[in-house]
Computed example of a mutant assay.
Amino acid sequence: MNDIEEMERETDYRVPALQRGLSILGMFSARERILSMSDMAERLGVSSSAVYRIVQTLVDMGYLRRVGRNAFELGTRVISDGFSYLASRDIVEVSMPHLNALRDRTSLSCHLSIRDQTDSLYLYRALAPQRLTVNIPVGTRLPCHSTAMGRMLLTGLDELELAQLYHNVRLDDYPLPAPRTLPELQQLIARDREQGQVVHRSDYSTAIATAIYDHQGQVVAAINLSGPDAVMTTPFAQEQFLKSLLATRDSISGELGSL
């Protein structure tokens, strides 16, 4: 297959409506904050009717916002998604060297996660070089209320926000020691918030987690140390590991602007 045939084949896989939708979003800039549907159609070289459904879909999804009868600006979805991505990327870049150093000091695995609704989403792991280790891949989602890092992520919410988040979530489907009711969850998270860390045992392993804070004092992520019970269960070991974990928390939070 020659280069021309290869290019034609790749073109066949394109989705014209998606391509036009992304092109429309790319038309907005600091100089041009508001565009009409006819502006979009003219720049795409198509009729207004050809972009009507695309624009309406972008409005319905929050990527565009109608500001007049035939005028649109970028919607909050673009801004929130963009800042969420940048914040997550910054957190990983800032946290990575600190978690690697923590792993080297303790010989335990370290993980970093953020909250996505009721899930704890794993963004980074520093894997310990020992045979018995806790290894949770990047991209894994685990229920917040049943994990150490997840519970620390939930400490960023107050009692009302917790109730709203878990309004339609069944908690009694999860095995103990996960909380089984909303009041139980609220009490647990209040205690976690006061203590500033969570120790959680499961499947012959133990995890110690704490929260990461940004320049506004908001919980933006969580980190943990995790390893086999044989290493983690003695009070002295837990005390030393917790001390190292909290020092790492302070270093990462400090780079994010937390006082």
Rank of each mutant, 00 (worst) to 15 (best):
D104H: 02
S107C: 14
R103F: 01
A71G: 11
L99E: 00
R43S: 11
R31C: 11
A87T: 15
S107T: 05
M96Y: 02
L44S: 09
G26S: 12
V46N: 02
I34F: 09
R103S: 01
L108G: 05
S109V: 10
R89Q: 12
F83T: 11
R65P: 01
S80Y: 06
V51G: 08
A50N: 08
D104C: 05
F83P: 05
R105S: 09
G82L: 03
D39F: 13
D81C: 03
V46E: 01
T57N: 15
G45C: 13
V94P: 01
R31K: 15
L64W: 12
G75R: 03
L108V: 11
L108T: 10
G75I: 00
S29K: 13
D81F: 08
F72S: 00
E93Q: 10
L102Y: 11
A30Q: 14
A41S: 07
A101T: 00
M27A: 07
M61V: 09
V92R: 11
S29G: 13
V92W: 12
D60T: 01
G68R: 15
D60K: 10
S107D: 14
V55C: 14
T57I: 06
V59Y: 12
Y85K: 15
A87K: 14
D90P: 00
R53I: 02
L44E: 06
S48Y: 04
F83E: 12
E73K: 10
V51A: 09
S29L: 05
I34L: 10
E42N: 12
R53G: 08
V59P: 13
A30D: 15
V94D: 01
S29P: 13
V92G: 05
E93T: 13
M61P: 06
H98V: 07
V78A: 03
Y52P: 06
S47G: 06
L44I: 02
D81T: 08
E42G: 11
I91L: 05
N70W: 06
E42H: 13
V92Y: 06
R43C: 13
R77M: 04
T106C: 04
R66V: 14
D60W: 05
F83S: 10
V92E: 01
D104N: 04
E32C: 10
R31P: 10
V92Q: 05
L74A: 01
I34A: 11
M27L: 15
P97C: 01
G45A: 07
S109W: 02
